[in-house]
């Protein structure tokens, strides 16, 4: 195939990407920056930053907080915790898979993908059955004559739901990088006197960093914007940024929903750019 033909193959995708990836974002900005009559305004953006609520803390003290900033920070916190848990569980899992026989690797990957084929709304529902106070988990603890635990409706339950749904997105990219790692490198490091910890720290980890970065991205992004998991497993008590966008959409405030979406997008893109920048520096240092 000639170079020219190869370039032509790119044409349909370029058109598609422009129409359905770039233009929609322009529409988000357009809606965010207009009012109901499509007149230009900063009001929606301003509303995100200035709306306040009074919050009563456990001690009964009342304080004024910025509603949407608080909601955003809360979502960020839960998403970061979920991402860290996913990384701590997912990295060793990916490593174990990459060390097993080729056939076992294939089976592992298939097995990890299987739950994703069943609707995630249904799977989240099943977690409710497990975690509720009279649920399977506490029934099991009761059989072992252990004290029941209260999980449903806590941050812990929301984190469990997120980790469960998104951990495959952490395992996969890390695994695919680890699997490509040349065993000669680790052997060489060992021959040169590195112990297991040293090999991991100096060879495996730095070389798998790109997988870690994409894993973090793929878990952090969906978990920061989820609204179903927090509704079901958080007992409706955790109002996250996804809930806020969906709530505004349902209340037919499309322009404000777009404003929240725009702000969220800008923050995330900035975060990604910073992370990518550090990853690039790291990579250059390694090289």
């Amino acid at each position: 195939m000639t170079k020219k033909m190869q370039k032509w193959l790119l044409a349909p995708y370029s058109v598609w990407a422009f129409l359905f990836m770039i233009v929609p974002l322009i529409f988000v900005a357009y809606y965010a920056l207009t009012d109901n009559d499509y007149n230009f305004t900063f009001e929606n953006i301003r509303k995100f930053f200035v709306t306040t609520s009074s919050v009563t803390n456990d001690a009964g003290q009342i304080s004024e907080v910025h509603t949407y900033i608080l909601i955003f920070l809360r979502s960020l916190k839960l998403a970061v915790i979920s991402t860290i848990v996913c990384l701590l569980l997912g990295y060793p899992m990916a490593y174990i898979i990459s060390q097993s026989s080729p056939r076992a690797q294939k089976i592992f990957i298939t097995v990890i993908m299987i739950p994703m084929w069943m609707n995630f709304l249904i799977r989240t529902y099943a977690w409710m059955t497990i975690l509720q106070d009279t649920g399977i988990l506490n029934g099991f603890l009761g059989l072992l004559s252990l004290r029941p635990v209260h999980i449903i409706g806590t941050e812990g339950a929301v984190v469990i739901g997120m980790v469960y749904d998104y951990i495959p997105y952490m395992i996969m990219p890390i695994y695919s990088v680890l699997a490509k790692l040349d065993p000669k490198l680790t052997e060489a490091a060992r021959d040169l006197g590195c112990n297991s910890v040293g090999v991991f720290k100096r060879v495996v980890l730095p070389l798998s960093l790109s997988g870690v970065v994409s894993g973090i991205t793929m878990v952090l992004i969906p978990s920061i914007s989820t609204f179903y998991i927090s509704q079901k497993l958080g007992n409706g008590k955790f109002y996250l940024i996804g809930d806020a966008i969906e709530g505004q959409y349902v209340a037919n405030n499309l322009h404000f929903a777009a404003a929240i979406a725009l702000i969220l997008m800008i923050i995330l893109l900035a975060g990604m750019a910073v992370m990518q920048h550090f990853a690039d520096i790291e990579r250059k240092l390694e090289a």
Binding site: I221, S225, A257, A261
Partner: peptide
Amino acid sequence: MVNPDIITGISLML
């Protein structure tokens, strides 16, 4: 990929 689903969904809908 780096945009949350909810933003992809809303942007296309708009």
